[in-house]
Amino acid sequence: MRVYGHDHTDPEQGPLPGREYVELLGGPLDGQLYDVTDLSPAEQRDGALLITEQGAHGPGGRADYEPGNQAGRWEWRGDMP
């Protein structure tokens, strides 16, 4: 699995030991992992607006992901400019 923020050609694009990740479900980043190791519990509850090139608003747009019903997985809520 690829970690969000790593180029697909990066040889170290996978998860690293000792880090905590959530899986992104749906939307333009579906299937990628997002590193939440340095996020506080409150930040993790809020989710994240992640920059993406593939979203509805094109390069620089953001995909909104929030914790879903399953632990360790964040669900896509839509795209934002």
Rank of each mutant, 00 (worst) to 15 (best):
R2P: 09
R2W: 08
V3D: 00
V3H: 14
V3Q: 10
Y4I: 03
Y4F: 13
G5N: 01
H6Q: 09
H6W: 08
H6L: 08
H6Y: 14
H6K: 14
D7S: 10
H8I: 08
H8E: 14
T9P: 07
P11H: 12
P11G: 09
E12G: 12
Q13P: 08
G14P: 00
G14C: 04
P15W: 09
L16R: 13
L16W: 05
L16Y: 10
L16M: 14
P17F: 06
P17H: 11
G18H: 07
R19V: 10
Y21S: 12
Y21Q: 06
E23H: 09
L24S: 03
L24T: 06
L24R: 05
G26Y: 01
G26T: 00
G26P: 07
G27S: 04
G27E: 01
L29F: 04
D30Y: 03
D30C: 08
D30M: 00
Q32Y: 09
Q32C: 11
Y34F: 15
Y34D: 03
D35N: 10
D35W: 01
V36E: 07
V36W: 04
V36Q: 04
V36L: 07
T37Y: 00
D38L: 04
D38P: 01
D38T: 10
L39D: 06
S40F: 06
S40T: 15
P41F: 02
A42V: 00
A42I: 03
A42G: 02
A42W: 02
E43H: 11
Q44C: 01
R45N: 05
G47K: 02
A48R: 02
L49M: 08
L50P: 12
L50I: 08
T52S: 13
E53C: 05
E53K: 13
E53R: 12
G55V: 03
G55M: 01
G55D: 04
A56I: 06
A56P: 01
G58M: 09
G58L: 09
P59W: 13
G61A: 10
R62K: 15
A63Y: 13
D64I: 06
Y65R: 09
E66I: 03
E66V: 09
E66G: 00
P67I: 02
P67R: 14
G68A: 03
N69L: 11
Q70V: 09
Q70D: 14
A71I: 05
A71T: 07
G72V: 02
G72L: 01
G72A: 07
R73Q: 14
R73H: 10
R73P: 00
W74V: 01
W74G: 11
W74S: 09
E75F: 08
E75C: 08
E75Y: 05
E75K: 05
E75W: 05
W76F: 15
W76R: 10
W76H: 14
R77M: 12
R77G: 02
G78Q: 05
G78P: 02
M80N: 05
P81M: 03
P81F: 07
P81N: 13
